[in-house]
Amino acid sequence: MNELLSNIIYFLIAVLFVFGLYGMLDKRNFMKKLMAMNIMQISVIIFFLALGQKLDATLPILVHGLEGVDQYVNPLPHALMLTAIVVSLSTTGVALALLLRIQDRYEDLEEPEILRGMDK
């Protein structure tokens, strides 16, 4: 049962990741592409956090009287994912700034329209 549950979570993460990818490939709207990209990044973050999980363990802040490796979840993925979140945030920020500029110029965020505008 546990095994199945475990795999289901991985499967869900995989589905999320692939959703993101599919959105990026398929959507023609730049904003939607960006959102899809975010979904993809988030799925990776969840994936890492899932890896660091331990059954019956608490969050990795030491509490008096609670000792032993098995009592706390793995802090490393958390630390890594803090970095990854910040990176994802920064990327999104830059992307939004770009979209603002594109909207300014082409008054549209649909890829075909923009490409037509670029050729002019």
Binding site: F17, G20, L21, M37, M40, T91, A95, I102
Partner: peptide, 12 residues
């Protein structure tokens, strides 16, 4: 922007 989307996908 396109580079960003694809590049970030690559990084992901």
């Amino acid at each position: 922007f396109r580079y960003l989307i694809i590049g970030t996908a690559g990084a992901s």
